[in-house]
Amino acid sequence: MFELLKQPWHWAVSGTLIGLIVPLLLILGNKKFGISSSFRHICASCFPGNVKFFKYEWKKEIWNLFFVGGIIIGAFIATVFLTDPANSIRIAPDTAGILNSYGITDFSSLMPVQLFNWSNLFSIKGLVFFVIGGFLVGFGTRYAGGCTSGHSIMGLANLQKASLIATLFFMAGGFFSTNILIPLIFKYLQ
């Protein structure tokens, strides 16, 4: 059983488990699945400034921060105890080829360690991939009213038209970024 857990999981297994989080949260306490709101609750609880958008009863939503804390712990457990280092991620050859042309050649871990490391922090690459990227995620998800969890999973599962539109534009932004923006970034930042 344990050895089975340590192998990479089939997408259908993972998808099913993620989908089951939706009814689990509903049944545990009538909570709607979503994650990006945690950023808003952190703003509201730590530095609301004088901004009306952050002056709400964040204590009512504190469950979401407990949930997010669990994600951090769970990811740690999975990485330390449930991952077989010899059985690392297998990337599509076409994508590996494209990334090679960007100078990304290390595919040994889930993230490109050549990009996501502290020594890149004060370079333009770090500015783009951590600082600007993160800013766009935080700004965009709140402006959109939810992220992939809230719109694309919870919202679509509840057949919300607004969530379908949001999901289509998430994808549009992603296609633009991966196929136009990121090649340009690597071309000019090498």
Partner: peptide
């Protein structure tokens, strides 16, 4: 905006 950041 989020989609752009998601891919980055």
């Amino acid at each position: 905006i989020f989609g752009t950041g998601w891919a980055i």
